[in-house]
Design a protein around this nucleic acid. Structure first.
Lengths: 187, 187
DNA sequence: TGTAGCATGTAAGCCGTTACATGATTGA
DNA sequence: TCAATCATGTAACGGCTTACATGCTACA
């Protein structure tokens, strides 16, 4: 009953800390719309598994809605305490990053520059789309004080992924510059 | 014999693609000094496990050094083919990010602003140190053409983590501004 | 002589993903 | 009545981490 809460567990407790009673399905949707930008978007199956554990440990409270299959979850007092003390007392871990594109560049000697350029371009595209989505998210948050920190994270994301895009652009320029230089030296 | 290569497996094959014969221990050290900035730094035990699998599958070749316990690994022709076709033909996955700090900010309503500020400051510190380390790495690479792509990744990292630092700074300013505004409104 | 670094592994377990399986509700 | 969406799970597995366990080598 006192096993440690998993990272995704804390994330779900966090979503429930906005004092709404939500189903697993709704939590998943919300995670996809918010957490996904800076944290993993857990698959449905994990959301349910996690909620089951949290309920067993008394960190969330479950309520069945009438005859429906739908269960709704809300944060318990113990859950809130657990979450708050985690937020306050545990040191922040550094961001866990697995940047697949960077690995490809690192191994650039194994492929043609054009292959690299193609990968970089699709990545830049991805950045662009993500930034557009982020802007839309921020837009939807409005200026309700309840979403103050969500808004701050959205703005943080804009700077962060702006850096991501800048890094990709710079790399593209560098690689294009050197590979065309090589081309012309072939003449 | 034809099971899929894991992400870390590809990373190790990648390190071996620089045509050196290395021990597991040396691979781990090198990973800590390079991969760690943009990819996971696999623990020793995983390096050995992975090398075992790669050897079973004929993707790396092992050689015992004299009476020593030390085994040295090098990339086989099959390993190189596998790696190159992966690099060329498989689509780049988007970066996998778990940004613990961002989650804390998202849940900022649960703690005091000072707690958040403390976390942010230690994160900014971390950014600073990482950027220093990155600069040192780049310095050590010199201008040997063999490390051309490593150098490009180091430069990419400088831009990338520059964005990370910028995002943290901005957030700090925003939070400080609003929390002091709240303080003065209490008077 | 002792300790720091070199060197290799095994065992257990958890977090998370993928695939599978089922059924209710709503609206066109 | 059909399809899309809502809704909840189970099973299997794989990647990675943590903890444990062992021994050699160089050098101060």
């Amino acid at each position: 009953m006192d096993r440690p809460v998993t990272p995704t567990g804390y994330a779900l407790l966090g979503l429930l800390s906005f004092d709404r009673e939500l189903s697993g399905y709704e939590l998943k949707q919300w995670a996809d719309a918010s957490l996904r930008f800076f944290y993993a978007a857990p698959p449905m199956s994990q959301v349910y598994a996690e909620l089951g554990r949290l309920a067993d440990d008394g960190l969330v409270l479950v309520r069945r809605h009438g005859s429906r299959a739908t269960k709704r979850y809300r944060l318990s007092a113990a859950g809130r305490r657990r979450l708050v003390s985690w937020l306050r007392d545990s040191p922040v871990e550094p961001p866990a990053l697995k940047h697949h594109l960077a690995l490809r560049v690192f191994l650039g000697h194994l492929v043609e520059p054009e292959d690299l350029v193609a990968h970089l371009e699709s990545h830049r595209q991805w950045c662009e789309e993500l930034l557009t989505e982020l802007a839309a998210v921020k837009e939807n948050l409005g200026d309700d004080p309840a979403w103050r920190y969500a808004r701050l994270v959205a703005e943080w994301g804009e700077t962060y992924y702006g850096g991501e895009r800048a890094a990709a652009r710079r790399l593209l320029e560098d690689i294009r510059a050197t590979s065309t230089a090589e081309d012309s030296s072939h003449d």
